[in-house]
């Protein structure tokens, strides 16, 4: 499928908002792939971290928001620690999660969680999980 790229898309309001909420300049990424090379959660992601940035650069924000990758980012900071351009990818992922939840509601339905298993979890796991997966 051929994707149309246009100025409206590349400079869309969505890209601007992601940059604003994340405080990051997405054009700083030159796609060396080091984030993707070291991401500890990449094997459960449908797109590599650098591909998420690429979609934002292309203005295809909707596709980035549909990706499961943003929900599998654990904000471990490994990518940011090694990024040669200092792109704070965890912040970009956070902005995408926020935007996704603004558009589509919470990512996690608390009612559908395995209560028995959850009883085992440390408190901070819920708090962190709810903060990441609910608006």
């Amino acid at each position: 499928m051929r994707v149309t790229i246009s100025v409206e898309q590349v400079r869309s309001e969505w890209v601007r908002r992601i940059e604003e909420v994340s405080g990051q300049d997405v054009m700083a990424c030159y796609h060396c792939g080091k984030c993707s090379a070291g991401c500890p959660a990449a094997e459960v992601m449908d797109l590599l971290p650098n591909q998420i940035i690429r979609l934002v650069q292309l203005g295809q924000v909707e596709r980035a928001l549909e990706s499961q990758t943003i929900w599998y980012c654990a904000a471990c900071q490994t990518c940011y620690a090694r990024c040669p351009k200092g792109v704070d990818l965890p912040r970009l992922m956070e902005a995408l999660r926020e935007l996704a939840m603004q558009k589509r509601g919470d990512h996690l339905e608390i009612a559908r969680l395995d209560v028995q298993a959850l009883a085992e979890f440390p408190q901070q796991a819920f708090i962190a999980g709810f903060r990441k997966y609910t608006a």
Binding site: S36, G38, E43, L48
Partner: peptide, 12 residues
């Protein structure tokens, strides 16, 4: 060596 092959979109 942990790398990526961005051409195929895979962590290697």
């Amino acid at each position: 060596v942990w790398g990526a092959d961005t051409l195929s979109g895979q962590q290697v």
